[in-house]
């Protein structure tokens, strides 16, 4: 039986979030909290693999108490178990401290049920770094496979997985040992419409919640703000690009117009 753990994060919906014009930071109260879109695909993939090979899907998040809602969303998508680590000690974590705390939680989960595969999103839509997945893999000393957009096979008996990794000009097929960690692209799958029994299960579900004290062998200096060497010296909004022209009409018309614009700029050819 496969045990797959998806790492998920609750994020403000940055499609509609307002920025504080003075500090250029996000006004988190101005947007509803949602499940990070990439992570929904991570959970969906885990559930599809469970259906294909049999097994159990757990989800893990580090976040404040309202993040329980993001876990419930994952139960709707078909996850079986939810774990959350939540404590003031974790607050203010950068990617280094986040991956440390998540690793400690993963070790605790693995004690209870060994983990074969960890799936993360490619990145979050609020932090945008894409560093947490590889950070976890490095700490657990397992192979990170980033940019996965197709899982060909997961073979627990023989201990390997085969995936497609998205490249700029195509994809590469990679075979890796298990356990390993994927970070997934959005095009890996389409999110399914959850069946009603999952919705009812999610409405009732209460995840297992651990504080820093519940984790074992934790070096408190590596948690939260204390464990975060990242210093944000300045945040600014990129200037809006000016000028430019958008061509309209049929493809032929657009190409013709583009050509005549290029030809007019003689210096291009001189």
């Amino acid at each position: 039986m496969l045990h797959i753990v998806a790492c998920i994060k609750q994020v403000p919906d940055t499609k509609i979030i307002k920025m504080n014009p003075k500090t250029n930071t996000m006004d988190r109260a101005s947007a509803p909290a949602i499940l990070n879109p990439y992570d929904a695909h991570a959970v969906e993939e885990a559930v599809r693999l469970k259906k294909k090979y049999g097994g159990i899907v757990s989800v893990l998040t580090m976040g404040p108490p309202p993040a329980v809602k993001a876990i419930k969303k994952c139960i709707e998508l078909g996850a079986d178990e939810g774990y959350m680590i939540s404590d003031r000690a974790f607050a203010g974590a950068d990617t280094l401290a986040t991956s440390y705390a998540l690793t400690k939680a993963l070790e605790k989960i693995a004690k209870h049920r060994p983990i074969d595969l960890i799936i993360c999103g490619k990145m979050t839509i609020d932090g945008d770094t894409g560093q947490v997945g590889p950070g976890i893999a490095r700490r657990l000393n397992i192979p990170p496979l980033t940019g996965v957009n197709k899982v060909v096979e997961v073979n627990k008996e023989k201990g390997y997985a085969i995936v497609h990794r998205k490249l700029e000009d195509g994809y590469e097929v990679v075979k890796s040992q298990l356990p390993c960690l994927f970070t997934v692209e959005k095009d890996i799958n389409d999110i399914s419409f959850a069946p009603l029994p999952n919705m009812i299960k999610a409405a009732r579900y209460q995840p297992t919640i651990w504080t820093a004290d519940d984790l074992e062998d934790v070096d408190r200096k590596q948690l939260g703000l204390k464990g975060s060497p990242t210093i944000v010296s300045k945040v600014w909004a990129p200037p809006k690009p000016e000028g430019g022209k958008i061509l309209t009409g049929t493809k032929e018309e657009q190409v013709n117009e583009l050509l005549s614009i290029i030809l007019e700029k003689k210096e291009l050819f001189s």
Binding site: F193, A194, P195, L196, M199, I200, A203
Partner: peptide, 29 residues
Amino acid sequence: LLVCETVAVECIVENGRVVGVRTDRPDGD
């Protein structure tokens, strides 16, 4: 128990009495 994002599409009627609802979700009865 509150379940959102779920549309009840009709009442399930058996022998002249309403016994449940059908929703728009898979396995939705």
